[in-house]
Design a protein around this nucleic acid. Structure first.
Lengths: 336, 336
DNA sequence: TTGTAGGCGTTATCAA
DNA sequence: TTGATAACGCCTACAA
């Protein structure tokens, strides 16, 4: 592949001149500029990004660490990042992996080896200290879906407690009194926070939520099915189901239907996230919209900006709040 | 960030020695090796991937060009690639974009700038000539979901004609005679090939398929809804619907249900792809399994192998065939 | 307006 | 077993 030197030789100018026209630098004669451009064209010249990154110490790339490409939630996240990457003309370095300490660590490490100075990372397994440490090394280090006070200006996150409250409040407003929860069994903050919000709101309404009304399972459709099956097996009574996410809600719904209960006439059900699936299932899922695409774009913008030298305004914070999307899976409770 | 030189200085050895221990090179004294390793550890040394790529002319990364991260099909594709990338320890350079000439061109160009010598690309907008040209420049250039005879050993593709035949044959075996097609309006090979297969099989069975029974729309749920609406509006009669993909099938299904037709009792319906959605919708979708994850992994393996100098066995080909997945949306036609 | 030369962090080739 | 040293392709003062 042609190098800058080849161009220089053919065009009969020096390396420096070629470099200048490549970078639209000033102080180049029009005639020279044209001639060089022509040669570049002819030789099919492509700047070597590695060489460039080496000397400029800028990688023109955006690192992304997510847990899983298949999951619609992460796909949407990635999509939001991709949008700004394309707009800003940077290449995406993608490191997927599971939610495990070693995997997350390795993903970030690889990005670091590429000297990528902007990255948005979704980490649940690493502890605050480690993350703060990385943040101090990488100017454009931004966390998504997580909040660490010490580096609050680099966190783009969702208020899950508020989310839980919104869910509970809405069901309450529809007259529901008997709740069942279908939660995630993974020991990360999210399910815990959502649960906190729900319990807070329920407590305020004078409703108690026994542990036996909460099932923990994998946060996918199958998990939702299993959770409902267990609830049913234990004879738990409920008219409202609050799911950890849309996939679980969908699984819960079909399992309920398989047992002859009609949604929403007999039981109302709510999801969380508002991924595509929420619109696909029948009845359409009433859920909480998690503006993850918007947040991801924000995070990417932020990462690039910080990497570019922008200093965060003191005290800024990027907290988002989920919003209620009323569709078909929730109705007012029948009079007893 | 610490460089190899820093390590050398602190450890009191030369650059060359450090380089040797980094690359597990031979001819290094045990004592020296340990000392250097210790220093590397202390200084938190991370090799600079850019410098390394520059001098070795190898990028240790795998380029990926796909149209869209949000689409479950592409998400699955990306996931399949990711699996081998992680296993083989290479970084993924992801270039998403639309199915447009300029976008695809730019995506590949960017990858080329990074001197990435292995790439799996999903291109529908670029013509054969352009792609063959790229293939000649990049040793590890592999196409997925497309076949170009000239570079057949670099193509991992699905036999869509066979797919169409399988669909039609199955419906026929269930006694269906009145067909409607919900196809994609995009002018790419896939819908055309599937249609060809369907028509071939139908013709063999002596069944004609009038143009009025085929609707072209966007290949998503909404497109499926619109297609059915148009078919219904025209008063087309059918007991079997063959959709371009699962999303369209799902849309078709709900629209049909909204019009009071019961699936599959009144109308049977088939999807294509077998993405997650096929299991989520009600009734569960009978569809064709597109082994895209497996194919993507194969493509990634191939790209890396070719990039590593492996020469393709003459005459090899990587054609895959979709397989029937019977679920709930198809039943034998009612006796008239 | 153009050219020269040094250096970015590594690897690799020779010598020692 | 080690150490100089020359690339790799590009950018950027500093000179001319």
């Amino acid at each position: 592949m042609a190098t800058i030197k080849d161009i220089a030789d053919v065009a009969g100018v020096s390396l420096a001149t070629v470099s200048r026209v490549i970078n639209n630098g000033p102080k180049v004669g029009d005639a020279t500029r044209e001639r060089v451009k022509k040669v570049m064209e002819e030789l099919g010249y492509r700047p070597n990004a590695n060489a460039r990154a080496l000397v400029t110490r800028k990688s023109a790339s955006l690192g992304v660490v997510i847990a899983e490409l298949l999951d619609p939630f992460f796909a949407t996240l990635a999509h939001g990042i991709d949008a700004v990457a394309r707009r800003q003309n940077v290449q995406i370095l993608m490191s997927a992996g599971s939610i495990e300490k070693q995997t997350e660590l390795k993903a970030i490490d690889t990005l670091l080896q590429h000297r990528c100075e902007a990255m948005v990372v979704h980490s649940k397994a690493l502890d605050d200290k480690t993350l703060v440490e990385f943040a101090s090394q990488v100017p454009g280090f931004v966390l998504i879906n997580r909040y660490i006070e010490e580096i609050g200006h680099r966190c783009v996150w969702l208020d899950n407690v508020a989310g839980g409250q919104i869910m509970a409040r809405y069901m309450l407003s529809q007259g529901h009194q008997k709740f069942a929860l279908v939660s995630s069994k993974y020991q990360i903050d999210d399910p815990f926070q959502r649960l906190t919000g729900i319990q807070k709101e329920l407590a305020d309404a004078g409703i108690e939520l026994p542990d036996s009304h909460i099932e923990y399972s994998t946060p996918d459709q199958e998990g939702g099915e299993i959770a409902i099956r267990n609830l049913l097996a234990r004879g738990v009574e409920f008219t409202a189901v609050l799911a950890y996410n849309d996939a679980m809600a969908s699984g819960a719904m079909t399992m309920l239907q398989d047992h002859g209960v009609t949604i929403p006439a007999d039981v109302s059900i709510m999801g969380y996230d508002d991924v595509l699936l929420a619109k696909y299932c029948r009845p359409k899922l009433t859920t909480l919209h998690y503006p993850i695409e918007m947040m991801a774009s924000k995070a990417a913008d932020l990462a690039l900006a910080y990497a570019g030298g922008k200093v965060p305004e003191p005290g800024v914070t990027f907290k988002y709040t989920p919003t209620l999307v009323k569709r078909e899976s929730v109705v007012a409770v029948k009079a007893p």
